[in-house]
Write a protein that binds this DNA or RNA. Structure first.
Lengths: 244, 244
DNA sequence: CAATTTTCATTTGTCAGACAATTAAACGTC
DNA sequence: GACGTTTAATTGTCTGACAAATGAAAATTG
């Protein structure tokens, strides 16, 4: 862990890497206290600001938490799924917005992953998940809803569907795919007619999940995927027509 | 972006958040140069070390890159899929190791997601992906292979399968799920007999992908998932027997 | 004039030392 | 023993400084 080549640049990155590796390989167990900043500075033979920059890098990844005071210091953080969700969503969102990912590609990925969850959700869904899905579908029927609120409710519906699979790893992976789509979805203006169709498909999905009918759920999801793609195509075509 | 409450703690976190939000909402486009550290310090009315800590947080998430010299500075980084892979894998690995995720749960998630890719891979696979899959399956048949090398080849095989879907979003999401499993997989000692079975299933998958037969690919993947779970159960049972 | 070298200003990377804020433990006091 | 006080440790922040890199401008040279 005390590896530090004579390269006097990126010292804070090197130190962060050394500590990160120690955490990943298990040398530093969860809740273990790191040496104080002054001690680390001495160990690595650098100044305290440099150590602090390294620690801030780790804090940005939720690998450590810091506490002030006499018994304070930096502690190895138990990375929780909730913490990871946020990073996952931020990263996914930026990946989509910065890499010219087409709506079609993102949409395909999202629904492919969601359909992977559906059979498990059909088997394991609880009353709680079902209630959330029903409530969101109901909300989506309210006439006064803005497009943004409609999309947010859509995300909540699909989150519940994914969470119903009862597999935290799946929920974590899907969080990025589903939530990162929201900005793209917000660019679509939903007509009353299209909302009606979507809510009807959501209801079909909820029905299938309630009946624990995996293949029916898959069918409805596939139909929803297809319809969403079609909606997006129409909107894009309409905008191009307007432009000319 | 100049929001900064009078709370004189976590200044660097607040500044990092302000800049991060500006990047996410598009106020700071890709390759835009941030003000110099001295200018930022003045803008936010903090010292330069505090600004630097904030920038290091952003650098840890690959949101910015820095360059020394006259025309240097911090630039908004185009987040590339390759950059995101690493973070995704690190985070997923830690999530699994720190949260008492059972092998069964992780394995279920991995194969569920992979089966979501398979139909797309069957449709779109290129000769390149097929060649990689064949090569890895062949390597897995070599007798001298260590368990670690076998697992690494397994990961490479499945990466090729996922990449064959031709959807970078799917590849990104799956990278975490597949690679994070490797440490867990490494804990399983593969007998010659179990390796033979796995390679046979890999060959079946490659055959199905080559024939563009989605349902055959799905069947083989399902069989592989089941067999992997069984192997893990056996190893766990054996270790418990040894302990008593 | 063109090409090359030198100088220089800008910016990040690092360091040293200091003080403020926080916190829990040690210490007195009643 | 209960309760307030002091104290030491630690992080958070600031100031000022110098080193290293780097591109642009200026000077030099052919």
């Amino acid at each position: 862990m005390k590896i530090d080549p004579k390269n006097p640049a990126d010292l804070s990155a090197q130190i962060a890497k050394a500590i990160r590796d120690a955490i990943i390989c298990g040398d530093l167990p969860v809740d273990e206290r790191l040496p104080s900043e002054a001690e680390l500075a001495e160990q690595f033979d650098v100044s305290r600001p440099t150590v602090r920059e390294a620690l801030k890098r780790l804090a940005a990844q939720s690998l450590i938490r810091t506490q002030r005071g006499a018994t304070g210091g930096a502690f190895v953080n138990r990375l929780k799924f909730e913490d990871a969700y946020g990073q996952q969503i931020t990263t996914s969102t930026l990946l989509l917005s910065m890499n010219e990912i087409s709506f079609a590609t993102a949409c395909e990925a999202r629904y492919a992953l969601e359909r992977a969850c559906a059979p498990l959700s059909a088997t394991r869904r609880t009353a709680d998940h079902l209630a959330t899905m029903r409530a969101e579908a109901h909300r989506q029927n309210q006439p006064g809803l803005t497009d943004e609120a409609f999309c947010a409710s859509d995300v909540a519906f699909h989150r519940a569907l994914v969470d119903a699979a009862g597999n935290p790893v799946l929920s974590y992976q899907l969080a990025g795919a589903v939530e990162a789509m929201q900005p793209l979805m917000n660019m679509i203006t939903f007509s009353a007619r299209s909302r009606e169709k979507i809510v009807s498909l959501h209801t079909s999905i909820a029905d299938a999940i309630e009946a624990q009918d995996a293949s029916a759920a898959d069918e409805s999801l596939a139909a929803l995927a297809q319809y969403t793609q079609k909606l997006a195509q129409d909107v894009i075509a309409e905008r191009q027509a307007e432009r000319s």
